[in-house]
């Protein structure tokens, strides 16, 4: 073999990797936040009274769950300017990831909504809350609590998907890794360290979420 491991180069650029990691977390967080807003709206629409909005929500989920993220990213970043919609790299990536996440979260919230007991909704109506108030003060909090674990899993998976931002040259972890790889040719070292950074971040987030879940009262 004759390959001796040299982690020195990788450690020398470790701060770049860390800032890439932070950027990836930021991209994932932004996407899950916007995606949750989309998912809430589409989730309520998907169980709502209007057949038009139910269909629309269903179509949205079907389309964006079944498209590869990379295709969405390329369409938004390279394709949309053709229609005069110009976003910078980060904006277009967050937008892509958010509509993708929104489709998954719609399903998550929909399931959470259907799991809210009918009697509890009636109790809200019985004390005189309007339909909108019942949704806001009774249904939504219960649903969000139901959806919390799935929301966390989605965030982890979006953080991993943030690696795709490397394709449009956003300097997140994978992008930095490729650069170091090319500069140093410490191939094994680079990818091992990067992979371990991703894995340990994912495991930490998962542990954090479990702790968070325990803090919130279970129903």
């Amino acid at each position: 073999m004759g390959y001796t491991l040299h982690f020195g180069v990788v450690w020398a650029s470790f701060d770049r990797l860390l800032s890439g990691l932070a950027l990836g977390l930021g991209l994932g967080l932004a996407a899950v936040a916007i995606g949750a807003v989309i998912g809430l709206a589409a989730g309520f629409a998907s169980v709502g009274p209007s057949p038009f909005w139910r269909r629309a929500a269903g179509l949205y989920v079907t389309v964006f769950r079944n498209l590869p993220i990379l295709v969405i990213v390329l369409v938004v970043y390279f394709g949309l300017p053709q229609w005069g919609i110009r976003l910078d790299k980060v904006e277009s990536f967050v937008a892509s990831l958010a509509v993708y996440a929104g489709a998954y979260l719609t399903e998550v919230f929909r399931a959470g909504l259907l799991a809210v007991p009918k009697g509890v909704i009636e109790a809200g109506r019985a004390i005189g809350l309007t339909r909108l108030q019942t949704n806001a003060y009774v249904v939504a909090p219960i649903m969000v609590r139901n959806a919390l674990p799935a929301l966390g899993t989605t965030f982890i998976s979006l953080f991993k998907d943030s690696s795709i931002a490397a394709v449009i040259a956003i300097p997140e972890l994978t992008f930095e890794a490729r650069k170091i790889n090319v500069e140093s040719f410490r191939v094994i070292e680079t990818w091992t360290v990067v992979s371990l950074l991703y894995v340990s971040t994912c495991l930490s987030i998962a542990a954090l979420l479990r702790a968070l879940e325990r803090r919130f009262p279970k129903f």
Partner: peptide, 19 residues
């Protein structure tokens, strides 16, 4: 499962060349 698929793809592409 903790590694992005893109990183797996790049690692599988670059790493074997070392050997």
């Amino acid at each position: 499962r903790g590694t992005p698929v893109l990183v797996l793809v790049l690692a599988c592409f670059y790493m074997p060349s070392v050997f």
